[in-house]
Nucleic acid binder design. Structure first.
Lengths: 212, 212
DNA sequence: ATTTATTAATTGACAACGTCAATTGACGCC
DNA sequence: GGCGTCAATTGACGTTGTCAATTAATAAAT
């Protein structure tokens, strides 16, 4: 128990708590992730975490932020590996599914925990946006190149929704598929590519998507 | 306090509790839906609900079952209104989105509350399957008619995932769209139709989907 | 080196929760 | 009227999130 906590100490303990929290979440869900349990697992007293987080919602937000950050990292890395915008879109889609399948609990805590006042955590919001950015950019580039047509925001939403739908239903066991999810994910990716590559029927076409 | 509870009384009270539970869920989320709060709202003592439900998870399952039942009803009704399989598919997709938009809290309790042992509630499982059935049937009919091609299970999953993705992301405020969600939903429905109507590249084609 | 001030960590306490056991209350029946 | 049965209430226990008060430990000051 050093007297003065260096900022590094603080970050380290916060990270440790977040890791324990994610593990607890993975094993017993949101309800099983109790502050007292976390403190016990961390080997400190019940209220010590309150020096590092305001309350339970704060810890949850930090956990989610961390995982969004990891996802953003992977997405950015995946985007760098492909030069062609179309291939990049496919790669990003695969990266999205891969991340979810490799870290199902992370994905659950990111998307299926409905944090009511999510907007009040600017760092969390920031990482969420960062995770979407590569896809937005790739869509804009494909639009510029002319291999995609339609409203950019719509396209991004369609892509994301399709991927999230597959992953999310799978993770909550709503699809009982014999063969693994990879094949289905590939079908979805192909479907989305085709759907999004087709010329639109009657919508505003090439407005640029906001990139803030 | 009548001495003997008629089965009707039991059903009535259960329904009343479920309604109160959904309202509590809508206002304060899963955590705010407390047994003691429900009892207070129902005007009875804390443990009276235990005569009608085994525990809290049981109540949650009952609430979800009720809402899946309503969705199944609407889906079946929507299916009846269209004769052509393709139009029926579109109508079912619209029905899906309409239900979610008209009953956002119902949708949330149905899909974003991750009930761990969902399989242990056969009545719930039954209503979930019933809610999917119209879409399965319509897909099979479109396949038979020849306007769709591909693996039936895949198609159903793709459709459902696309719709669920849109609705689910929207309900958790992950899409910040200026115009309402109806337009985006229409785009998604058109995209899915096109994606699913296209001839498949190299997959097993016309196996029938399981309808159990 | 001893005191003092600062800050980390612990303990105590409280309300709310889920749930079980024991109790009370009300009604049909003999 | 008394009795058995079943609905409903109350009591109680352990657990949770969180705040206030307390203790402990160390950097700074004298």
């Amino acid at each position: 128990m050093p007297k003065i906590l260096t900022p590094n100490d603080v970050l380290q303990f916060r990270q440790r708590l977040c890791d324990l929290a994610l593990k607890a979440f993975a094993e017993q869900g949101v309800e099983g992730m109790s502050l007292r349990g976390l403190a016990a697992a961390a080997g400190c007293s019940r209220t010590t975490p309150y020096r590092y987080f305001k309350n339970k919602a704060d810890i949850l937000a930090a956990v989610r932020q961390t995982q969004f950050q990891r996802m953003a990292d992977e997405n950015e890395a995946a985007a760098l590996k492909e030069d062609d915008p179309d291939k990049r879109l496919t790669a990003l889609a695969r990266s999205y599914v891969s991340f979810a399948m490799a870290n199902p609990d992370a994905y659950r805590v990111m998307f299926s925990v409905n944090q009511q006042d999510e907007q009040r955590y600017p760092e969390l919001v920031k990482q969420i946006k960062r995770a979407q950015q590569p896809m937005k950019t790739a869509v804009n580039e494909a639009l510029a190149k002319g291999t995609l047509h339609g409203d950019p925001a719509n396209i991004v939403h369609i892509l994301w929704a399709g991927l999230h739908g597959i992953v999310s239903l799978h993770l909550s066991d709503k699809l009982h598929l014999g063969r693994g999810i990879d094949e289905l994910a590939e079908v979805m990716i192909r479907s989305l590519s085709r759907a999004v590559a087709a010329k639109p029927s009657k919508q505003a076409s090439t407005r640029r998507v906001r990139e803030d």
